[in-house]
Write a protein that binds this DNA or RNA. Structure first.
Lengths: 199, 199
DNA sequence: AGGAAATCTTGACAATGTCTAGTTTGGTGA
DNA sequence: TCACCAAACTAGACATTGTCAAGATTTCCT
């Protein structure tokens, strides 16, 4: 009827993307507890059972939202890396700061991505997005000598360290004397990491 | 009436403890998603609204269960420390292993304790139990020189590292080539930590 | 144009947390 | 001893949530 082709295909067009966006907004505005199937549907302007046709059910929707989160997560870390000194250790510290920035900027999304595995139903797209985020950090760790005989040990150690920091700070598990818990001093916290010998 | 005084005070006696125990069992047997108010009540043999009189509501019950979890958590780490070589670094590695052991032995409880802060309503008892567990690790880190100017930086670094490892391994976020993800080599992963100069 | 498939709506259902009112129990004081 | 009272627990109802079945509407292919 109307003459705006991309505006409202009247079967809503791309409900899938709209529902994911609604979920991200609810997460940012009201937290994880308010992220329900029906709330996402209402925000997108559709009935409460419309999401099931695109995501199967709640786990599918949450997985899609978390997958989108991993994309944003990788973007955040990549942006931090781009703006930093190209020296390997500076790059690594920038990645860590990007990691913390994301956790602080999107706490509820961060929780959904990492702390509620039982509520998700990982599919190929989700695994790909999560792996892509992992690879950003792994690439940044590649110049360094592994800390054990496992070639991935540096990534694991750094990832665990920064993830633990972000997770514990967000959960408020650190002692209250912590006045400024915003950004740890990664230069001091990260151990000395010698560069690999062979290129 | 009957002659077994501790058995059944018939107003159930200590429903509070029974509900916490039921919650721990449900958590161990069926996971976090099955841990509901009504399931705990049914397992303890009381009506579905009995728990509210002792815990206020679901958040109160979950908090009490998580608080009990922190007690078990501290016990696990203390036991690991007792059985280890008394040298500071050996003590620290033992604590880390105890941490991982707990996470592996009680995955759902671990998730409740650390990954669902929005569902808990921390009270004094909970904070005390969580702090006590923190202190076990802090005491073990005390012999070492802080890694930054913050005197608590060593505890934070070690706690974050081991928590990140436990959390990521449990969430299955590490790459699949990880055949034996059971217990990391903390001797290699933990950075060299010089002892404090002054006692 | 016509029909098939995708998309979305409506209505119902079971499960859950919470609230209110009522019932039972155990202790305490006259 | 016994009556009373507060605590402990039950019973029922209600709103919210996720899921499912059935039907209506739109889009697309031929």
């Amino acid at each position: 009827m109307t003459s705006d082709p991309p505006r409202k295909p009247h079967h809503h067009g791309n409900l899938r993307a709209a529902l994911i966006q609604s979920g991200l907004e609810i997460l940012a505005e009201s937290g994880l507890s308010k992220l329900t199937l029906r709330a996402c549907a209402a925000r997108a302007g559709v009935s409460h059972s419309a999401p099931a046709h695109h995501f199967g059910g709640l786990p599918g929707l949450l997985t899609a939202i978390a997958g989108r989160g991993f994309e944003i997560f990788a973007d955040t870390m990549n942006a931090a890396r781009r703006d930093a000194d190209p020296a390997p250790r500076a790059q690594l510290i920038a990645i860590c700061r990007g990691y913390m920035d994301f956790a602080e900027a999107h706490p509820a999304l961060f929780t959904l991505m990492f702390n509620t595995p039982a509520r998700l139903a990982p599919d190929d797209a989700f695994v790909a997005a999560a792996d892509a985020a992992y690879d950003v950090l792994a690439d940044t760790c590649a110049p360094f000598e592994p800390v054990t005989d496992d070639p991935r040990s540096t990534e694991m150690m750094v990832w665990a360290l920064v993830h633990g920091l972000a997770s514990l700070l967000q959960g408020g598990r650190f002692k209250p004397e912590n006045d400024r818990m915003d950004m740890p001093d990664f230069e001091a916290i990260l151990p000395p990491l010698p560069l690999r010998a062979d290129p």
